[in-house]
Protein backbone atom coordinates (compact mmCIF):
# COMPACT_ATOMS: atom_id res chain seq x y z
CA UNK A 1 0.00 0.00 0.00
CA UNK A 2 1.24 3.44 -0.85
CA UNK A 3 -0.10 6.87 0.08
CA UNK A 4 -0.12 10.01 -2.01
CA UNK A 5 -1.25 13.49 -1.03
CA UNK A 6 -2.83 15.91 -3.45
CA UNK A 7 -4.97 19.02 -3.47
CA UNK A 8 -8.72 18.65 -3.00
CA UNK A 9 -10.65 20.18 -5.90
CA UNK A 10 -14.00 18.55 -5.07
CA UNK A 11 -14.19 17.00 -1.59
CA UNK A 12 -15.46 13.55 -0.71
CA UNK A 13 -14.44 10.04 0.24
CA UNK A 14 -14.65 6.97 -1.94
CA UNK A 15 -13.20 3.49 -2.41
CA UNK A 16 -13.03 2.19 -5.97
CA UNK A 17 -11.05 0.18 -8.47
CA UNK A 18 -8.33 2.08 -10.34
CA UNK A 19 -8.46 2.75 -14.06
CA UNK A 20 -5.33 4.42 -15.37
CA UNK A 21 -4.71 6.66 -18.35
CA UNK A 22 -1.10 7.66 -18.86
CA UNK A 23 -2.02 10.10 -21.62
CA UNK A 24 -4.52 12.94 -21.35
CA UNK A 25 -8.17 11.96 -21.19
CA UNK A 26 -10.05 13.36 -24.14
CA UNK A 27 -13.38 13.82 -22.38
CA UNK A 28 -15.60 14.29 -25.44
CA UNK A 29 -14.01 11.43 -27.39
CA UNK A 30 -14.13 9.19 -24.33
CA UNK A 31 -17.71 9.80 -23.14
CA UNK A 32 -19.71 10.83 -26.19
CA UNK A 33 -21.02 7.44 -27.27
CA UNK A 34 -21.76 6.38 -23.72
CA UNK A 35 -23.90 9.45 -23.14
CA UNK A 36 -25.67 9.29 -26.47
CA UNK A 37 -26.55 5.65 -26.57
CA UNK A 38 -27.39 4.63 -23.06
CA UNK A 39 -24.17 2.89 -22.05
CA UNK A 40 -24.45 3.13 -18.27
CA UNK A 41 -20.95 1.76 -17.79
CA UNK A 42 -19.47 4.62 -19.87
CA UNK A 43 -17.18 2.56 -22.11
CA UNK A 44 -14.31 4.74 -23.31
CA UNK A 45 -14.66 5.55 -27.01
CA UNK A 46 -11.39 7.42 -27.52
CA UNK A 47 -9.44 5.54 -30.19
CA UNK A 48 -6.30 7.53 -29.39
CA UNK A 49 -6.21 6.49 -25.75
CA UNK A 50 -4.55 3.09 -25.78
CA UNK A 51 -4.93 2.71 -22.01
CA UNK A 52 -8.66 3.36 -21.80
CA UNK A 53 -10.19 2.58 -25.20
CA UNK A 54 -13.00 0.04 -24.75
CA UNK A 55 -12.80 0.04 -20.94
CA UNK A 56 -15.64 0.96 -18.58
CA UNK A 57 -15.13 4.26 -16.81
CA UNK A 58 -18.29 4.66 -14.70
CA UNK A 59 -17.67 3.93 -11.05
CA UNK A 60 -13.90 3.61 -11.49
CA UNK A 61 -11.20 5.65 -9.77
CA UNK A 62 -9.93 7.35 -12.89
CA UNK A 63 -6.22 8.15 -12.59
CA UNK A 64 -4.84 10.49 -15.23
CA UNK A 65 -2.45 13.35 -15.90
CA UNK A 66 -5.11 15.78 -17.18
CA UNK A 67 -7.97 16.04 -19.65
CA UNK A 68 -7.49 17.31 -23.19
CA UNK A 69 -9.43 18.11 -26.34
CA UNK A 70 -12.70 19.87 -27.08
CA UNK A 71 -14.00 22.55 -24.76
CA UNK A 72 -17.22 20.59 -24.53
CA UNK A 73 -15.19 18.55 -22.01
CA UNK A 74 -16.63 20.22 -18.94
CA UNK A 75 -20.23 19.96 -19.97
CA UNK A 76 -19.73 16.35 -21.05
CA UNK A 77 -18.43 15.59 -17.57
CA UNK A 78 -21.35 17.56 -16.09
CA UNK A 79 -23.79 15.44 -18.11
CA UNK A 80 -22.03 12.21 -17.12
CA UNK A 81 -22.51 13.24 -13.47
CA UNK A 82 -26.13 14.23 -14.03
CA UNK A 83 -26.80 10.84 -15.66
CA UNK A 84 -24.88 8.99 -12.95
CA UNK A 85 -22.30 7.64 -15.40
CA UNK A 86 -19.33 9.45 -13.93
CA UNK A 87 -16.13 7.90 -12.60
CA UNK A 88 -16.11 7.31 -8.83
CA UNK A 89 -13.42 9.96 -8.58
CA UNK A 90 -10.89 11.82 -10.70
CA UNK A 91 -7.28 11.66 -9.58
CA UNK A 92 -4.86 13.88 -11.45
CA UNK A 93 -1.10 13.60 -11.30
CA UNK A 94 -0.79 17.15 -12.73
CA UNK A 95 -2.58 20.33 -11.71
CA UNK A 96 -6.15 20.06 -12.97
CA UNK A 97 -6.93 21.59 -16.38
CA UNK A 98 -9.68 24.12 -17.03
CA UNK A 99 -12.09 21.68 -18.67
CA UNK A 100 -12.02 19.02 -15.97
CA UNK A 101 -12.22 21.75 -13.34
CA UNK A 102 -15.28 23.22 -15.05
CA UNK A 103 -17.01 19.83 -15.18
CA UNK A 104 -16.30 19.16 -11.51
CA UNK A 105 -17.39 22.65 -10.41
CA UNK A 106 -20.55 22.68 -12.53
CA UNK A 107 -21.57 19.31 -11.10
CA UNK A 108 -20.85 20.47 -7.59
CA UNK A 109 -22.76 23.80 -7.87
CA UNK A 110 -25.66 22.91 -10.17
CA UNK A 111 -26.43 19.27 -9.39
CA UNK A 112 -27.73 17.83 -6.16
CA UNK A 113 -26.61 14.56 -4.62
CA UNK A 114 -23.69 14.02 -6.97
CA UNK A 115 -20.48 12.72 -5.53
CA UNK A 116 -17.28 12.68 -7.57
CA UNK A 117 -14.28 13.58 -5.41
CA UNK A 118 -11.54 15.25 -7.41
CA UNK A 119 -7.91 15.47 -6.30
CA UNK A 120 -5.08 16.93 -8.35
CA UNK A 121 -1.32 17.46 -7.97
CA UNK A 122 -0.72 13.83 -6.94
CA UNK A 123 2.61 13.80 -8.77
CA UNK A 124 4.20 11.73 -11.49
CA UNK A 125 5.10 8.96 -9.09
CA UNK A 126 1.40 8.37 -8.42
CA UNK A 127 0.70 7.75 -12.07
CA UNK A 128 3.69 5.47 -12.54
CA UNK A 129 2.79 3.46 -9.42
CA UNK A 130 -0.96 2.96 -9.83
CA UNK A 131 -2.22 0.23 -12.15
CA UNK A 132 -5.59 -0.90 -13.44
CA UNK A 133 -7.45 -2.98 -10.89
CA UNK A 134 -5.67 -1.68 -7.79
CA UNK A 135 -7.92 -0.49 -4.96
CA UNK A 136 -8.01 3.24 -4.38
CA UNK A 137 -9.24 4.97 -1.26
CA UNK A 138 -9.72 8.73 -1.35
CA UNK A 139 -9.93 10.64 1.91
CA UNK A 140 -11.51 14.00 2.60
CA UNK A 141 -8.14 15.76 2.94
CA UNK A 142 -6.84 14.67 -0.48
CA UNK A 143 -4.93 11.62 0.76
CA UNK A 144 -5.09 8.81 -1.79
CA UNK A 145 -4.24 5.25 -0.75
CA UNK A 146 -3.33 2.78 -3.45
CA UNK A 147 -3.19 -0.97 -2.78
Amino acid sequence: MKQFKGRVVAPGTVKAEALVSHGGLNTLASFQKALQFGDKTATCGDQNNKDLYGKQMAGKALCLPQTIGSTTGGLVLYCACSMNRQPACLLFSNPIDSLAAAGSILASVWLEDVSMPVVDNLGEEFLSYVQDGMTITVQEDGTVEVE
Partner: peptide
Protein backbone atom coordinates in the same frame (compact mmCIF):
# COMPACT_ATOMS: atom_id res chain seq x y z
CA UNK B 1 -15.35 28.25 -25.44
CA UNK B 2 -14.62 26.12 -28.57
CA UNK B 3 -11.03 25.04 -28.45
CA UNK B 4 -10.19 26.01 -32.04
CA UNK B 5 -11.75 29.48 -31.67
CA UNK B 6 -10.07 30.13 -28.32
CA UNK B 7 -6.62 29.19 -29.61
CA UNK B 8 -7.13 31.36 -32.70
CA UNK B 9 -8.39 34.36 -30.71
CA UNK B 10 -5.45 34.13 -28.30
CA UNK B 11 -2.72 33.39 -30.81
CA UNK B 12 -3.61 35.12 -34.06
CA UNK B 13 -5.76 37.98 -32.76
CA UNK B 14 -3.98 38.56 -29.45
CA UNK B 15 -7.21 38.53 -27.44
CA UNK B 16 -7.18 36.95 -23.99
CA UNK B 17 -9.26 33.92 -23.17
CA UNK B 18 -8.84 30.80 -21.11
CA UNK B 19 -9.74 27.41 -22.52
CA UNK B 20 -13.17 27.63 -20.97
CA UNK B 21 -15.49 24.71 -21.03
CA UNK B 22 -18.97 24.81 -22.50
CA UNK B 23 -21.42 26.26 -19.92
CA UNK B 24 -18.52 28.06 -18.23
CA UNK B 25 -18.44 30.21 -21.39
Amino acid sequence: AESSAVVYANSVLGARCNRNSGIMD
